[in-house]
Amino acid sequence: MAARLRLPLVLLLVLTVQKSLLSDIDVRDVRPDALLLLAVCAGLVGGSEVGALVGFAAGLIADLFVQAPLGLSALVFSLVGFAVGSFRSTLLREIWWIPPATAFVASAGGVLLYGVLGAVVGQSQYVRPHLVTTALVVASMNALLSLVLVRVTGWALVRTTERYAR
C-alpha cells in the first residue's frame, strides 16, 4: 500500500473503532478517546511537528461528530501532539512502558485542557466535579490502548519518520 495512504486509512480506522467499539466500553460512563490517543502516538513516533499535524487532523474529525464548538478538539489535540513530540527526544522509546506512561499523562492533560478550554469558549458545563476522575479514567484506558495504537501509528507514519531520521 502507498505510504501516503496509510495515515488517512488509520484516521478512518480509529474513528470507526471509536464510534463502533469503544463507545460501548465505558467505566462509570467514561470511554477511551482513541483520536486523542492517536495525536499522542503521532507525537511519540514522529515528533512535535507530526504530532501537531496529526493531532489537528484527528481533532477536526472528532469535532465533526460531537456537539462541541468546531475547532475545540483540533486545538487541544494539536497542542497535546506537539507537547508529546517536544518531550520525545528526552524519552527512551525502546522501553516498553514509555508509550503507555506517556499516553496516560498526555491523555489526562488533554482531557483537562479540553474541559478548561471548553469552558473558556462558553461550555461552562465541561468543568464539572468529576472532570479529574474523567481525565484519570480516559488516561488509564488510553494507556492500555497505546500498546497497540503506537505500533499502528508507527506503520502509518513510516515515511515521515524515515524522512526525519535522514
Binding site: E49, A52, L53, F56, G59, D63, A74, L75, V121, G122
Partner: peptide
C-alpha cells in the same frame, strides 16, 4: 519550523471556533 506549524494550526482552530461561536459560518459548518 514545528513551532511555526503549531502557531498556524492554533490560529486555524481559533478561527473555526470563532466562526462556530458567532454563528457566522454556522450554515456551512
Amino acid at each position: 519550523r514545528p513551532r511555526f506549524i503549531l502557531l498556524l494550526l492554533v490560529l486555524t482552530a481559533i478561527t473555526l471556533l470563532t466562526l462556530d461561536q458567532r454563528g457566522t459560518g454556522s450554515g456551512v459548518i
